[in-house]
Amino acid sequence: MSELIESIKNRFGDKIVSVQEDFRPRSVKVRVGDLVEVMTALKNEEPFRFNQILDIAGVDFLNHKPRFLVAYILLSTVTNKRLIVETDVDEFEAVPSLTGVWCGADWFERELYDMFGIKVKGHPNLKRILMSEDFEGHPLRKDFPVRGTTAPEQRYAPWDKRRTREY
């Protein structure tokens, strides 16, 4: 067991559901409820100091319970280490927002919501980011076809039928 994983286990105890050391970077799994607390400690406390959140990736395991896995990819420029924190979340559950811990989590969480439909609780501005707001469905879910749910000729809604903008 590596030094980092050991210190994480000592610090958080049974909040860590499982650890994965076969793949790089190593990952730990926590429950959704403990996420903010663990992340705050990982960012601020001394042996960890993960001062950057690089990415938030969702994975859809269709027909599994819980359905989604959310991976938070962290980097510490102080200790030069990487870590992935994973959490399981089901279809109608929400993950807590980490914008209070790293403000850079903002867009990544919006992307998570846009692509997977995973709600992010406490996010200041939870709207679609890549798709337009009248898009239906969440593209990166496994039950969404790659060519979309509408026929190509119907995908583009003519300009004048779109609702008018605010400005």
Partner: peptide
């Protein structure tokens, strides 16, 4: 799974790949 980041011109370009043992990446 794997996450690997490299230094490209704009910063760190990383790929997070999840495999389920098939010839396509699962995610």
């Amino acid at each position: 799974y794997v996450y690997f980041g490299t230094e490209v011109a704009n910063g760190e370009l990383g790929f997070y790949i999840v495999s389920d043992g098939e010839q396509y990446p699962y995610r």
